[in-house]
Write a protein that binds this DNA or RNA. Structure first.
Lengths: 205, 205
DNA sequence: TAGATTGTTAATCGATTAACAATC
DNA sequence: TAGATTGTTAATCGATTAACAATC
């Protein structure tokens, strides 16, 4: 296995491939070529082949890629073949909405704990999970071996939450708060700020 | 004004600059250098200068950038100096959560209409907006001169909603549904699929 | 076999970074 | 003036695309 240096662009496309392959699987499609993938996803077929070739030889010359096999391979690359527990901080409307994605995450990745600062919310349930007080965050993260966190709290609270998460050893953060979060070396933040997405979309009008 | 060919990467960074500049403005900071911006945002100062130079000469040699002035300039580039009305499709938890971002959008960009397919929801209010039936979508989009749409409906309904939006003349879509949306030439889609973000985050664990 | 399609090398294209003259 | 910092050119780096031998 040669894993020299995978670019961020490649990693961002893998879930795109996976999502589309899942839809092919649901339609009982057996094999797919880079040509077909490229047309469906608006990508260059050579790029798709090159992306996949970063991780091994998954296709067959003259045939293409076997859908089921390629799904398994991509899942394995994304570590979705192991159990990955996710914690959600913030049980407002956004937190509720995000917890609904559990249905799509299926597999091994799941939101397994929800926290909120509001004592009025603690003890209530969202999709089967009891909202917990932030004071027990560290304990739960360790107990459940939680590795990824989703921040869905107001902008003002986001940095403090991130700091606490880093103290608990979290190394991946999906941040919905409309602020820059400062993190220490080794922690990765993906921004999911609706404001920024809309602002960049406006440029193209 | 020389606007040769602005890369997507540049457009995606502009809202990042804007967000940070707004926070500086709130702290009454008057000027900022590309050096300082680079440190705060983890970007190369030369890149920041080059990004901004795509659109004009906004800084002063030896001084840096005047915060208020740069904010105005970036807003103007992103067309945030004009009124941009946004429609939200889907009034579930996610729709509720997204409509709360109106508070951060402030300025000229606002969600001005909300639609839902569920007759039980039509007529109810979210943050001051009455949920409307999808049958009146086309009418409202034209009347309000709505240009951007947010799709916050279940995966199964997303493509049909997108098709209808394109018929209404929408050219920018922010898609929260975990599916590939196919669009016609000239329509831009930004994906905000929580599933994909979490999957790519998992790679780095 | 002939046609299709991969994996990979080479060519192209574009984006990032470095360096520096201009100038506040 | 001396120090700081821009805007911009040139150098570097990396990513995308084209092309094709290998082979199913």
């Amino acid at each position: 296995m040669k894993v020299p240096r995978i670019s961020e662009a490649v990693v961002r496309r893998l879930p795109v491939y996976l999502r589309y392959l899942n839809s092919l699987q649901a339609l009982h499609v057996r094999t797919v070529s880079s040509q077909q993938l490229g047309e469906a996803l608006d990508l260059n077929p050579a790029q798709i082949r090159k992306d996949l070739a970063c991780f091994g030889e998954f296709g067959r010359k003259g045939i293409g890629y076997e859908v089921n096999y390629l799904i398994e391979k991509i899942k394995s690359i994304l570590k979705l073949d192991q159990k990955i527990n996710v914690v959600l901080i913030g049980a407002g409307h956004l937190g509720h909405a995000i917890s609904n994605y559990n249905a799509y995450l299926k597999d091994n990745m799941r939101i397994t704990a929800i926290f909120d600062a509001d004592p009025g919310k603690v003890g209530k349930k969202i999709v089967g999970l009891t909202i917990q007080a932030l004071s027990t965050l560290s304990e739960t993260v360790k107990e459940m071996n939680i590795r990824i966190a989703i921040i869905a709290v107001p902008a003002e609270a986001a940095q403090a939450v991130a700091d606490e998460l880093m103290r608990c050893g979290i190394t991946g953060i999906l941040n919905f708060a409309p602020v820059n979060i400062r993190v220490i070396e080794g922690v990765r933040v993906h921004d999911a700020d609706v404001t920024m997405e809309l602002h960049s979309l406006a440029y193209y009008l």
